[in-house]
Every structure is written in structure tokens, then in C-alpha cells.
Design a protein around this nucleic acid. Structure first.
Length: 545
RNA sequence: AGGGCUAUAGCCAAGUGGUAAGGCAACAGGCUCUGACCCUGUCAUUCCGUAGGUUCGAAUCCUACUAGCCCUGCCA
């Protein structure tokens, strides 16, 4: 599990050994325009873990060069998410911190004759750019004098032109097969209040110009980004070279991470929230980090998942089962395992005194003694799960309760089902059982084997709970022609009322239950910290299928 | 169509000339006061997109082909 992102690691090792770099410095550069999701986790974890493995560091730098889309709400949320994952950026920076320097470098480029002010309209610019099969046509403004460019650029900054009236362009090659090199725009005019620099600027650098400069200024050694920036690397390198940055960062691309049956795009997530199909960005159905946290995912489980799933130059779609596996694994020894009943079925212990309640000792986690024990109630009136009872044992593999059979109630006694009481509709209403005092949990009773072990809760002390049954990630049916919003089915989030055992001291009422394939766990509704239960197996398996 | 990139099992993914790691999923069995967990076994038998070639020897080198992804925002 410690081995990850080998191809990048190899590059770093080589650079360190050859003396090209002295220490590794990476950065995570989100644009503060959305909440982070599990896909971003790959970038965060890769950057931090890789740097750390070489004793290096990682900066958090907000890429805020487009004030039209960005907001402080997101920078705060992103900071929290990174903290939640357990990472500590060496520095927290903003692209806008470098606006002065970026401007200076643009001026320097103009002086070198490597950049010019272009008066073409956006439409004309696009037309002049050509296409995949046609070389671009040089802008008529391409050969303005340095002096004129300098004056025009200064005027741009001073707010003498309207938006879209002029831009600063790099003078590279209009015939390049890489369209990014056909005199890319470096600066555009935007009369928008920036969330940090307010109205100081009315011109803003484009990503392609700002990003390499920011990396170089900070001394970033390896600038990791996703595959779609491959075509931008020549431009990235051009900027670093022509701006004569003393520090030369290296851009390395890697594939994005997707999860099956999950929608990850910012646009769709935003639509879900804006159309109120989910409660908010931290709705448990969302693949955002805050959503996953609310569903009970631990930072460790996400980190282990990302590390184990590796990294390559391929956009991967990993099965959701793998994410769940790492959650189960992480929770296995950490979580207190309480008992719960999703679909309650009344059980009356006919040979137990009415009104008496006894308390039995139960391990909070049978695999981890350190989590201690708790007292659980037992009385004449109990609930078990409907799925744990059938009239007649269907086959030898059936390990639950049936009429005439005996099972162990986990942490308590053997009970034997003697009679089924039907309700007015003819459905199974309750079961009358007898218990055997000699089989008390921990007594070492060994004279006969029960037909399995099931969970229960004591009726008078049980706490009503809400179970979210299918609150998986957002559903996406690829073959369906309807719009994404129409395909999203909020009802896939099935909520069932049930009970959780009610005797415990240190936990608030549990409200949200997340089913993870063969087990489930609950999240404390207030603190979001305590994760409980990892027990009930059978009924959930059948419920999910 | 021009350019760039990628192709290893159902899903991820190691491997860079020496005879296909690992994880998830799946299947079979064992154990069990949770049918979970745990344990055991099976899961690419000349095979690494296809076809050729070089070599004593290739997934790894060469050639050709095929498929997929990205690129014509004053987004990032």
C-alpha cells in the first residue's frame, strides 16, 4: 500500500540523484470555484505523499486568476477539506499574490518582442486561429512596435479599454500543430471585483501564463496536473524559458480518478445542488469530500483507497466496491459495533418475567478489546430483523431463526422460536420464543450449537434510528438519453426507520446509517466523529440485492 | 483530418531485454457468540490492443496497423 504513483516517483528519484533538484516541492492548485470531490483527493494525496516521501513539502495555492468564477466560500471549504484529510501545506498561497510580478513579466516579454497587444474581437481571434487542419493566420496587430505595445498594455491596465477590446498575446507560432501555441492569450480585460485583490486589477492573466510563473516563483520542482494539460506543456515550458525564471519546474501529467456510478463533474454537482435534488454539497449522496465525510468515510479510508489504486497516465474509473473495501478495513478495528434492527420484528420471550430488564456485558468491538465494553438491555420484549426469521428453514445453509430452531442473540442468550402470531392482515406480527438462561453470553455454554447468531435490540430501551439504505453515489445510466438531471433519482436514497440498541453512554443519537455492502456503520448525527456498528450482515446483503 | 497521449485479467495496477507483483471483485472450502472479520485455495499456462520483425531470449527494442482519450474558451 505504500507504493504509489511509480512513474512520478521515478522521475523525482532521478532528478534528486542527478542533482537537478535539491529537494522536492509540489503544490496543489485548486481553483476556488467548487467543493473538492474524491477525484481531487487523488491530486491532493499524490502531491502531499510524494513530496513527503522524499522529505519535501507541498504548497496549497489557489489558482484565482478568473474572478468571474471564484469565491471565498470555496477557499475556506477547500482549506477545511485538506485539513480533514490530514495534510498541512507548507504555505497557503494565492495566484493573485503574484499579480504584480506576473504583470512585470508580461512587460518584460513585450520588451523582448515576445508579446503584443491584439485588437481582434474574440470571434476574429478564433477565426484567425485556424483549426486542426488549417494553420492560423497572423493577427494584423502582431508586429506593433515594442513602444506601442508597452503603451497599450499600460492603458489596458489603467482601464482605458472595454472588456474584449484588446488582449495581450504571446508571439509564438500561428502555424503550430499545437493550437495552444498559436499566439495564446496572456492577459484579458475583466472589470470584475476579485475576491482578494478587489478592484486593483482590471486585467487578469490566463492560466497558461500565470501557472508556470507561480510554480517557478515558489520553486516548485514538480508540477503535477491532469492529462488534459498535456497539450499545454510546450506553452508552460515556453513561459518559464522566455520569462527567464531562475527556477525551472517540470510539469508532469497523470490520469484523473473516477468512481463507477458516480458523477464527478463540477457542472453536474452544481446542478444537483442548484436544482435542490440534493440538500447541499455535503449531502451524503454527493461524491464531495464533505459528502463522503457525512456518509462516514474516514480520511484514512480515502487515503488508503487512493494510494492502493495507483496512478498512471490513464484516466481510471475504479469500481465503488474498492472504495468501500478500504472504509470497511479502516473501520474494522476502530468502530464500536453496536446492534441495530433495520426492519423490526417483535419477539416476545414467553419465559422471561414481564417488566424485568437485565443488563448484559457486550464488547464494543469483538476484535479490539481496547474499545471496552458496554451494557446492553435484555427483557421479555425484543426486536430482531425481519430478514432474520423465516417460518421454515429453507436449506442447511440457512443460519438464522426459524420456527422450532434455536439461535444465539448476539451478546445474550439462545432463543427458540415456538410460535408465530399473525396480525390482522395475515402478516407475521410477532414471534413467541423461549430463552435458555444457561446459554448466557460469556458463560462458556457449549452443550449445543445454535443455528447461527443474530442481532437484536431490547424494545423499551431501543432508540429509533433512520437508516439510509441506498445512499450510494449519484446514479448515472450511460445508455439513457435523458438529461443528467432527469436520470438522477433522489428516491434511490431509501430511508427506513428502525432501532439501535439504546444503552450506551458516550454517544448521541445516531441518525445516519450507511450501508456498505456486507456491513453498515452509523455516523453520529451531531459530531460526525463516532462511527459505530459494523455488524448486521445477512439482512443487508439481501436488502441490497 | 493535423498534433499530443494511452493500450497488461471484470476494475485499478506493478513490470523498461531474462521468462507476467499486488489490491478490489468473483468462485470454492475452513473457522466463527455477527453467513462479517479471519484463514486456505482458484482466478492472464508461452501470455501483456493486433500483425510482423530484431534477439539465445521481448509485455519490455523496431515497423505497420487498430482502438480510446485530449486539443480550434478573452475557463482552469
Amino acid at each position: 500500500m505504500e507504493e504509489m504513483s511509480n512513474f512520478i516517483k521515478t522521475i523525482m528519484i532521478n532528478d534528486l540523484e542527478s542533482g537537478k533538484v535539491k529537494a522536492i516541492l509540489t503544490r496543489f492548485p485548486p481553483e476556488p470555484n467548487a467543493y473538492l470531490h474524491i477525484g481531487h483527493a487523488r491530486a491532493i494525496i499524490t502531491n502531499f505523499e510524494l513530496a513527503e516521501s522524499f522529505g519535501g513539502e507541498t504548497n496549497l495555492r489557489f489558482d484565482d486568476t478568473n474572478p468571474a468564477k471564484e469565491d471565498v466560500e470555496f477557499v475556506e471549504a477547500i482549506k477545511k477539506d485538506i485539513e480533514w484529510l490530514g495534510y498541512h501545506p507548507a504555505k497557503v498561497l494565492f495566484g493573485s499574490d503574484y499579480f504584480d510580478k506576473t504583470y512585470e513579466l508580461a512587460v518584460a516579454l513585450i520588451k523582448k518582442g515576445l508579446a503584443y497587444i491584439c485588437d481582434l474581437t474574440p470571434e476574429e481571434t478564433s477565426k484567425y486561429r485556424g483549426d486542426f487542419n488549417t494553420a492560423g493566420v497572423e493577427s494584423p496587430y502582431r508586429n506593433r512596435s515594442v513602444a506601442e505595445n508597452l503603451e497599450l498594455f499600460s492603458n489596458m491596465r489603467a482601464g482605458k479599454y472595454k472588456e474584449e477590446e484588446r488582449v495581450l498575446r504571446a508571439k509564438i507560432d500561428m502555424a503550430s500543430p499545437n493550437i495552444n501555441m498559436r499566439d495564446p492569450i496572456l492577459y484579458r480585460i475583466l472589470y470584475i471585483n476579485h475576491h482578494r485583490t478587489k478592484d486593483k486589477w482590471c486585467i487578469y492573466p490566463m492560466y497558461d501564463f500565470a501557472h508556470p510563473i507561480q510554480d517557478a516563483i515558489e520553486g516548485i520542482t514538480h508540477s503535477l496536473c491532469s492529462l488534459e494539460y498535456e497539450n499545454h506543456r510546450p506553452l508552460y515550458d515556453w513561459v518559464v524559458e522566455k520569462c527567464e525564471m531562475p527556477n525551472v519546474p517540470q510539469q508532469i501529467e497523470f490520469g484523473r480518478l473516477n468512481i463507477t456510478n458516480t458523477v464527478m463533474s463540477k457542472r453536474y454537482l452544481r446542478e444537483l445542488v442548484n436544482n435542490k435534488l440534493v440538500l447541499s454539497y455535503d449531502d451524503p449522496r454527493m461524491p464531495t469530500l464533505v459528502g463522503l465525510a457525512r456518509r462516514g468515510y474516514t480520511p484514512e479510508s480515502i487515503k488508503n483507497f487512493v494510494k492502493a489504486s495507483g496512478l498512471s497516465r490513464i484516466n481510471s474509473t475504479i469500481e465503488g466496491e474498492m472504495l468501500e473495501h478500504f472504509l470497511r478495513e479502516d473501520l474494522k478495528l476502530k468502530a464500536n459495533r453496536l446492534m441495530a434492527v433495520v426492519e423490526p420484528l417483535k419477539v416476545v420471550i414467553t419465559n422471561y418475567d414481564e417488566g424485568k430488564v437485565e443488563y448484559l456485558e457486550a464488547a464494543n468491538n469483538t476484535e479490539n478489546e481496547e474499545l471496552g465494553t458496554r451494557k446492553i438491555a435484555f427483557s421479555r420484549h425484543l426486536y430482531i430483523d425481519k430478514n432474520d426469521f423465516v417460518i421454515e428453514k429453507p436449506d442447511k445453509r440457512y443460519k438464522r431463526l426459524a420456527l422450532g430452531l434455536e439461535v444465539r442473540l448476539f451478546h445474550a442468550y439462545f432463543i427458540k422460536a415456538n410460535e408465530v402470531i399473525y396480525d390482522a392482515d395475515g402478516n407475521i406480527g410477532e414471534i413467541h420464543c423461549t430463552y435458555d438462561p444457561e446459554t448466557k453470553s460469556g458463560s462458556g455454554f457449549n452443550e449445543r450449537k445454535p443455528n447461527g447468531t443474530i442481532q437484536f435490540v431490547e424494545a423499551s430501551t431501543a432508540i429509533p434510528a433512520t437508516f439510509n439504505l441506498f445512499d450510494t453515489l449519484v446514479i448515472d445510466n450511460p445508455g439513457d438519453n435523458r438529461s443528467f438531471l432527469e436520470r438522477f433519482n433522489p428516491d434511490s436514497w431509501i430511508i427506513k426507520p428502525g432501532f439501535v440498541e439504546g444503552v450506551r453512554k458516550n454517544f448521541a443519537v445516531l441518525e445516519r446509517f450507511q450501508f456498505v455492502r456486507d456491513g453498515y456503520y452509523a455516523v453520529d448525527k451531531d459530531s460526525n466523529k463516532d462511527r459505530l456498528c459494523f455488524n448486521r450482515i445477512v439482512s443487508l446483503k439481501s436488502a441490497i440485492k
